[in-house]
Design a protein around this nucleic acid. Structure first.
Lengths: 95, 95
DNA sequence: GTTGTATTTCATCTTTTAATGTAATAGTTG
DNA sequence: CAACTATTACATTAAAAGATGAAATACAAC
């Protein structure tokens, strides 16, 4: 890996390496969820969720669609799904 | 994944998500290296390298052996090797 | 248009992380 | 033991990330 790729990869990992964001990604593994549905599972404020979602969006990890006044989020990069799956296999093989 | 596992995983990812630390891990993929050898490839100070190594050690990602006044570092967790390999495949398939 | 719900933006504060320089430690060689 | 090399520890500073609360936006329903 060249330095530029390492930097990009580090940035990607960093965006995944916050407990709230990692949890959001896990929740979004198999379905899309609105902000409110996410907040119900992640114990923090709406504003905080929103900020974390923005980080994931900025990184291109997730995107969203609007429906009425709900915003449904989903993982937009298949590689992230694979990476999460791999981490799961490696570090939580029993589940 | 339960919350505790998510927290642990996030912590692990965080320790890998700094460009210098990720580069160190890449360098250590196939061989052990002394602090000086690492510093030669990562452009920063000795003290800084040392601090980053400490973070990786604290996380149990790498360990080291002493020989004379050199300290040789290596990746001690096979799962980290696999994870790096997977990231490589997913995000830099051309290399 | 007013009310209500969902989400975001903004500003601020706090906490954490990273970098830097210097001093200290450990080991080697003469 | 003096001089030297490699590495770490410590203290300080600088920078970035995270949380919080209040205000703003967007849409829907009445």
């Amino acid at each position: 890996m060249q330095d530029e790729q390492i930097d990009a990869m580090a940035k990607l990992l960093k965006s995944m390496s916050h407990p709230i964001r990692l949890k959001i990604l896990c929740l979004l593994q198999d379905k899309e969820l609105s902000v409110g549905e996410i907040r119900a599972q992640v114990k923090t404020t709406n504003a905080n969720i929103s900020q974390h979602l923005n980080i994931l969006r900025g990184q291109g990890i997730i995107d969203f669609r609007k429906d009425a006044n709900f915003i449904y989020n989903r993982i937009s990069d298949r590689r992230i799904l694979e990476l999460i799956k791999k981490m799961h296999n490696l570090f939580c093989p029993s589940l």
